[in-house]
Design a protein around this nucleic acid. Structure first.
Lengths: 197, 197
DNA sequence: CCTACCGATCGGTAGG
DNA sequence: CCTACCGATCGGTAGG
């Protein structure tokens, strides 16, 4: 039997509520009873919609991973654009995905290590592949003389680190919108604090 | 009674082993029985040396916090030095503390949220105060014309984010030593990818 | 530092 | 989606 619309939306609701709890308390410290209570039902009832606690974590982590890939591919699709511009677009795309749902992003960034094998290894492979995209962009920029750094891999790691800190302080109702944040991050990372504007 | 030398070193040993486990599996997912087994004793025996699981976490988080403060204060003690140089020294000092013990650093960065109140709030206040140090340095640099950024607070957050990603990939036996890493990070953050070397 | 144990809570299931 | 429950495990304690 295919799941009815009602069942599917209940599942989505479970994912969303669980994600918020995972973010606030951590995956391991969140109990299925807390989750059930937050949804207004009994613990056992959750299992008509999901198979396990980890299934939720799996969906969140791998779902956002594929969003990141789709977003990156779109930002860098046009090879005729200067590499520095492609990198700016990739940064902006990354920030947009990251700011779309703070709870999902936080769980993606910090709770993936509670995935059991082989999911954990698969997840890390995806993350590696994504980082390689940025690494290649920077390496191309260095080759074309648009950028300068002694180590593209090192630079890519540092760049993504700055971006991935965002979910820990970004507030959707704050002064800065995603686009303005993305722009400032790109400027700061490409120009540096001592560079001229 | 004051603790004997043997008791004190056993306590240190518990802290170290616990920290390694907290890093690998997360605080909530680490059981006192695992910890006891790793130390070759029974679970109940741990409590002759410590009062609670959280006490260990508390010691690790607040201990490293005070190391960071001491290190920062030393790096910025001489006000006659140019601000950009002070910032470089503060970055290098931060990296040195961060690379001294990878497990302690990882727990400090990611597990503090399992502290119960009021420790959790106190910890966040310390972190805020530390960030303010970098914020002020950048603001001074902007005022003196040595640095350029539209938002010193934003720049400080981004800078610390890049640095704090380090424990997730740094390997003590890798190609780059702490000093070389610190130097490259400082260069990249201050000069940017498009800046000239 | 151990043995023996406490009450509480965990993720998940059976049967309706 | 609920009731009732499973075995396992949790942090921590008493008493030696």
């Amino acid at each position: 039997m295919t799941p009815s619309t009602a069942t599917r939306s209940r599942k989505t609701q479970i994912d969303r509520t669980a994600t918020a709890l995972f973010r606030a308390r951590g995956y391991a410290a969140t109990s299925m009873r807390e989750l059930a209570t937050a949804l207004g039902l009994e613990a056992g009832s959750l299992y008509s919609h999901i198979k396990s606690k980890e299934e939720i974590l799996h969906r969140v982590c791998f779902g956002l991973a594929s969003d990141f890939f789709a977003s990156f591919d779109q930002a860098t699709a046009d090879a005729s654009v200067p590499v520095a511009t492609q990198l700016r677009q990739a940064i902006e795309a990354h920030v947009r995905v990251l700011t779309r749902d703070g709870a999902v992003s936080a769980v993606f960034l910090h709770e993936w290590r509670h995935l059991s094998e082989p999911a954990r290894t698969e997840f890390l492979a995806l993350r590696d592949r994504y980082e390689a995209g940025f690494r290649n962009l920077i390496a191309q920029g260095v080759a074309s003389g648009e950028m300068h750094t002694p180590d593209a891999a090192f630079a890519a790691l540092t760049l993504l680190a700055s971006l991935n800190w965002l979910p820990s302080w970004y507030r959707p109702d704050g002064n800065l919108g995603p686009d303005e944040i993305a722009h400032r991050l790109a400027e700061q990372l490409l120009q540096g604090l001592e560079g001229k504007k």
